[in-house]
Write a protein that binds this DNA or RNA. Sequence first.
DNA 1: TGTCATCCTTACAGAATCCTTAGAATCTGC
DNA 2: GCAGATTCTAAGGATTCTGTAAGGATGACA
Lengths: 220, 220
Amino acid sequence: MAKILVVDDEPAILSLIHNALSTDQHLVTTISNPAEVHSTDLGAYNLILLDVMMPGVDGFTLCREIRTAVDCPILFLTAKTLESDLMYGLGLGADDYITKPFGIGALRARIQAHLRREGRERRNMLYLDPVRLNLSGKELYIRENKVPLTKSEYEICEFLARHRGQVFSKDHIYEGVFGMDGDSDSSAITEHIKNIRAKLARHGLEAIETIWGIGYKWKL
Amino acid sequence: MAKILVVDDEPAILSLIHNALSTDQHLVTTISNPAEVHSTDLGAYNLILLDVMMPGVDGFTLCREIRTAVDCPILFLTAKTLESDLMYGLGLGADDYITKPFGIGALRARIQAHLRREGRERRNMLYLDPVRLNLSGKELYIRENKVPLTKSEYEICEFLARHRGQVFSKDHIYEGVFGMDGDSDSSAITEHIKNIRAKLARHGLEAIETIWGIGYKWKL
DNA sequence: TGTCATCCTTACAGAATCCTTAGAATCTGC
DNA sequence: GCAGATTCTAAGGATTCTGTAAGGATGACA
């Protein structure tokens, strides 16, 4: 059971989808006027279906706006069958691109697949090639060797690893890991980074990169 | 960059896919004999492409087996276009169902979308043909070669690239990048521009144009 | 209460980066 | 061409940031 938002200007399609998804026990909200999307609490939905060609508003633009606000799956539902449109749409951050006319069974199957994926992601393991994070057990392994980390050290690793490739300042890391204010001297982060590095280095691993003047990032 | 496994019995398709995905900097492993899958370390891959109709083995069955072992996205690649096949395939735990013949661009876009959802790919990218800016990672690539830039250099590049084609005076750039007043001698910008140009020139690229008496602009 | 592990702070040295300066080279308009 | 203005180049010092080490603070636990 999931909360699904459907945006399309054709009432016939809306009701068709509404019926189909309701039989799958989903809570479906339909919007026929794209302008209403901005006054909607997007964060409340688990999945969003979006038409591309609607009067007044471009679905692609709408997708870009929605994507900045939420992380849930966004599925395009469109009559534009060109490969270039698909590439453009998916490039905007959408997760699927379904062309009309579509089989209602196919739509349901695709939606189920996306929702299933969302559930799978929340499982408690994070593989970053030689490194494995046991999120529920708060443990870090390198090739089956458990690396003893203190709580703070582990939390910093998890934070960086979850956002691998992204750079964070020390203040940002402090805030992301321990929450709230950075009045505490964030140079404590420097110290933790040093210790983490020393422990990972024993296994010949160099996972944290320092971006001079900006911060650190997980580079695996 | 992700590790991708492709299973298909047709060598022509394998090489086609291998080439396409390699240009996206993925590490591609191809298997033409489905029986080999069982002796493969599936956990090493970030995404799996699977043909359905292969001699000896049924792709659907294979998918079910793979899904019990790993959580990564599994994409079917098949000539079976029936809606019932799609529903069956996705019901087995696959994440996408792409029917042959498929556009190679569409395949790449779908793969990128799946990897993005997995968090394997950065979200914020800026493509300016030979140049790629990883906004969250603060990196600049030229045709997949990372160009080492200092913080200021990168920020200036990002500023100019974001407003490509637009001319900015040195003061304007200083203000746009470092914020606030330009009391600091903006001739520092000249210096940075010089250094950036030198680094880009090593890759045979000339991206910043100087508009005499006015300023600079990103011309890609 | 004493010990231990962890976390935070401080201080300093070394490194990377940034900025300034001054002179050479280049461009523009006449 | 020439003069004036603008940009480019190069080098050095100033500044900022990071890495490291040591010691104190805190809290858990016996």
